Each structure stands twice: as structure tokens, then as C-alpha cells.
Computed example of a mutant assay.
Amino acid sequence: MNTAPTLGVEEEFLLLDPATGENVPLVEPLLATLPDDLRDRTRLEFRRCMLELVTAPAVDLTDVAEQLHRLRSAAASAATGVGARVVPVGATPVSDTDRRTTTNPRFAAIAGHYGPIARDPAVCGCHVHVGVPSRAAAIDVCRRIRPWLPVVQALAVNSPLHAGADTGYASWRSVQLDRWPSLGPIPHFESADEYDRTVGALVASGVMLDATMVLWHCRPSTTYPTVEVRVADVCPTVGDTVLVAGLVRGLVATALAGSLDSGRVPDHLLRAAHWNAAHTGLAGTLLDPRVGRARPAWTLVDELLETLGPALRRNGDADVVTLELERLQHVGTGAERQRRTFARTGSISAVLAELSLEE
């Protein structure tokens, strides 16, 4: 019997015009055409041009992959029916002219509170939930895994294009989200009480509208007994998503076993490491916040894999994660793949057509 922690994945996608590549506000009619059994696995996101697909909790990575394939295929078919494409890309590639929120009153409250930054062009991420035994354990896990999250972010960069041009960043989504005051590395918390006091003070200041506005890169879920990791751009393929999910579960399982503790890493170094990951992805060096210096990106990836090895084997994820990492090293990150296509064709439309989900 597999006793690995449960795993769930949320993927956000843009709905784009097939001809122009612009964001289109068609999520409501798209959801209406999905099969009934899959509609429960969707969520209305912040914008009408965004679609969120959510897997059911699973133990085996193969189950997660099968769910992702089915959800992506169904979404692609529904999008064709309403004249749109579903595209796994982390930032708005061309333009976002209709920036209304969906009908959730909470989203309207967020837009009213945060003003212009809530009306920035839409961005899409991949969030991974991993089961933990308690809230106290979730806080401890978040503290232990935070020095490694820039490496996970660098593996998943998939938004180099914005407003019709190459931004020079591998993840423009990450840069854009830095405008939000409650987003970034989770602080170093020693207890749930310290976490609660901090969140309460931030809500009182207005930095957070309410306690659900904890948007840190990892956080204890307010709804489920999980740790949620939020550093990844939405991934171009199911294989990329499975890799991120397997590594995140490996991090959480290693932390739960007490085998992951790098001491108190300064917040300013963590922020610099995340900026570095967003800027270059795996194409160069990454700041290792544990030692405060830049190191070759793939050296850090290899160290991460070695560190997580026992947990990956216990979880039954080692073979899948190793194969997906080898593939990633061969084909490059999502950002690198987009840039190759853009350099070859000179066309953002060609990049988006290549990325679009297939039925």
C-alpha cells in the first residue's frame, strides 16, 4: 500500500483568441459546455479569460497525470466550441482588454481594495497541495522547504512573453506578481501561534484584505489539511506539471521526516533567489540562499534530487521524476521552448499555437 502524502494540483489557463492571441472573456460559456462530471473539477478564477482545472486528491503520480490529461483535453474541446484556445502560459502574451473579474463577490472586493495592481493583465500558475497531518506540521514544513523553492520556480518558468514581446525574463508572471504586497517567500515561522499573530497584524494593516489573502510562495491551506506551494508558472505539458508535483511532494515528505533544515535563511536572500529564478530560469546560475552565492542552476537541481531521493523512493515517484528531469534537461524549460519557437518563426501566434492544449 502506498503511504505517500496525498497530492492535488490546480492549473490555471488563459483563454485566447485563435487569430489574434488576445485574452478573451469566455470562461462562463466554456464551463457550460464541459461534461457534468468534469465541471466539479473547475473553478471560476479572478478573470473571465482564465480557466482553473483541479485534480481530485491522489496518491499515485500516474493518477495525477491521467486526471490532468483528461481535464486538459476536455477543456480544449470546450474552448473550440466557444471559439477560443486554452493555452498554458504564465503571463498575458499579447493583450488583455477586458479585465473584469468573474462574478465572485470576493474577487470584486479584492479588486476594490488593491486597485490598479488587481487590474494588471492576467497571469496563470500551477499550485500543488500536499497532505500533512496537522496545521502545526504545515507551518513547520513551510519553514523547512522555503530555501529550495527558487529551484522549483526555475524549473517551471513559462512566461517570457508579454504585450507582444520578449520581456527578457523567464517568468514575467513572477515579476508581475511582486506588485502584490502579501506575496513572496513565507517568513520564517517557528510556530502556528507566530504565524497567526503575523497574519492578524497584516490584516489589521490592510496589507492583507483578510486571512485568505496569504499569497506567500508556500502556505498552510485555509481549506484543506495541506501545504500549498504556489511558485510555478502553469506548465506547458502534463509531464512538466507532474515533475513539479513530484518534487513538491518530495520536499514536503522530506520536511515531515525531519530531514530538511537549512537554518534561518534571510528573507532578502530568498527574495533575491526568487528574482534570479524568474529572470534566468535554469539558463545560467541561481542564487543559493543557504550559502549566499550564485551556483550553476543544474548543480542545484542535482542537489535537490539527491536531497529528496529517499522521499521520492518512498513515495514511488523516483523513476517518474528522474525521467522528467532528464527530458527537461534535453528540451529546456517552458520559457526556453517558447523562445526557440519565437526565434525560429518570429511569430507569437506560432508560439501560442504550439502551446495550445489539444483535444
Rank of each mutant, 00 (worst) to 15 (best):
A56E: 13
L26K: 09
V59S: 13
L305E: 10
P310G: 01
L31T: 01
T42M: 01
I117K: 07
E336V: 00
I117C: 04
A76Y: 13
T167N: 04
A297W: 12
P147F: 00
G246D: 02
D60I: 10
H268P: 02
D36K: 14
H188K: 04
A138I: 00
V291Q: 03
S191P: 09
R340G: 01
T285M: 02
L269W: 06
F46K: 10
S259R: 15
R264W: 05
C49K: 03
V351S: 05
L308G: 03
P266Y: 01
T80E: 12
L68A: 15
A109I: 15
E52N: 01
L325Q: 02
I348C: 00
H279F: 11
V157I: 07
I348N: 00
H69Q: 05
W172S: 04
T55L: 09
S259W: 07
A109V: 13
C49L: 01
S347V: 08
W180S: 10
T198I: 13
R230L: 08
V321L: 05
V59C: 12
V238H: 13
E306H: 09
R339T: 07
G309L: 07
L16R: 08
A353F: 02
V54E: 09
G125E: 05
S95L: 01
V207Q: 10
R264E: 04
G115Y: 12
P93E: 01
T97G: 11
L247V: 11
H129I: 00
H274F: 14
D319K: 06
A74L: 08
D288R: 04
A78P: 09
L304T: 09
R70S: 15
A278E: 08
G115T: 13
H69I: 14
C235P: 07
T299L: 09
R72F: 08
V175N: 06
A283G: 05
E12P: 04
A343K: 03
C124M: 10
T299R: 09
F342R: 13
S259E: 09
F342Q: 04
T92S: 13
C124Y: 03
L355K: 02
A272M: 02
L38Q: 04
L308A: 00
G21C: 08
N315A: 11
V301F: 07
A343Y: 04
D36M: 11
R344E: 11
L161A: 03
L325N: 03
G125C: 06
R146G: 03
E52T: 13
T198N: 08
G184K: 07
R100Y: 08
L355E: 03
L14Y: 09
T80D: 14
G246H: 11
A79G: 14
T55Y: 14
E306L: 13
